[in-house]
Simulated scan of single mutants.
Amino acid sequence: MPEVLRRFVDPEVDRHLLDDEGEFIIDEVAKHWITLVLPVTAMAASMVFFIAMIVVPTVWALLMVIGLVLDAWAAIRIHQMHMDRFVITNMRVFRVHGIINQHLATMPMTRILDISVEQPLMGRLCGYGHFIFESAAQDQGLRVIRYVGDPEKRDLTIQRVIQMAGLRTNLAHPR
């Protein structure tokens, strides 16, 4: 696949790493599967319109357009979810998202003051949550990350990275 085309199909988070500084990925998180429920439902609904073209042939063109619009919307939405990645490295956290225009928001581990994990009822049942990062900066590009699967595990991963980097003191063994 040509390089230019691949950038629209794969989020390529590796190209954002600081290889010469020894940065490596600890966890790469795609959106939780719950974000696909609405687009998949739209695709299923489009099939109803395509079948209705046979049953009601007088308005087949309208039914076909509705079905195609639903399919196009669902395909774009599914691809948007695929291109949205939250990455935890040994040095920072960052999010890459977007299909045509790609957006990169990053926060070094040293700037993370507080992480809140919000899990609505549906998130507790299905295993997803939303991260809210607090930092010393007033204007942040990386504040809320929505629909993170297994948020408790991801939070512990970030806390371990911060601890291993020596950015926080060990409460059990004060220095």
Rank of each mutant, 00 (worst) to 15 (best):
I76P: 01
E118I: 08
G141F: 06
P11V: 04
I51W: 06
S135C: 03
P108L: 05
E23C: 06
M109G: 03
I132H: 08
G67H: 05
I78L: 08
P151W: 03
A137Y: 10
I25N: 11
Q80M: 13
I162M: 11
H82N: 09
Q163Y: 15
R77Y: 06
H79T: 01
M64D: 00
A30K: 11
H173C: 04
V148P: 15
I112N: 01
N170P: 00
I99S: 02
V161W: 03
P57R: 06
R124K: 13
L5V: 15
M47C: 10
V59S: 12
A165Y: 06
R146I: 08
I112H: 02
H97E: 15
F24M: 06
D150F: 07
M53H: 01
V161M: 14
G127I: 08
M83R: 01
H16A: 05
T110A: 12
V148N: 11
M91P: 01
V65K: 06
M107D: 04
Q102L: 03
E28T: 12
R111A: 14
I88C: 06
F133D: 10
H130P: 08
L17N: 03
K153W: 02
M64Q: 08
H16Y: 15
V29S: 08
G149S: 15
A105M: 00
E21Y: 08
M109Y: 09
W73L: 13
F50Y: 11
H32A: 07
C126A: 14
I158A: 05
T35K: 10
W33P: 09
Q80D: 13
V48Y: 00
G22F: 10
L125T: 00
L36S: 14
R154N: 12
V55G: 02
L156A: 14
M109F: 13
K31I: 01
P174I: 02
V161L: 09
V161R: 14
V56E: 13
H97F: 14
A165Q: 14
F50V: 06
R111V: 02
G127C: 09
R111K: 15
L63I: 01
F133Y: 10
I51Q: 07
T106C: 08
L63C: 07
M83I: 00
A74M: 00
T157W: 03
M164N: 15
M122F: 11
F133E: 05
W60S: 14
F94N: 01
R124E: 15
L63Q: 07
M81Y: 15
G67R: 00
T89F: 03
F8L: 13
V65F: 11
A74W: 00
M81H: 15
W60D: 09
H97L: 13
R15D: 04
K31Q: 15
V13C: 07
A137V: 03
A44S: 06
I112G: 01
I132A: 06
E152A: 11
L38H: 07
R124T: 01
V4K: 06
R95K: 15
V87R: 00
D19W: 07
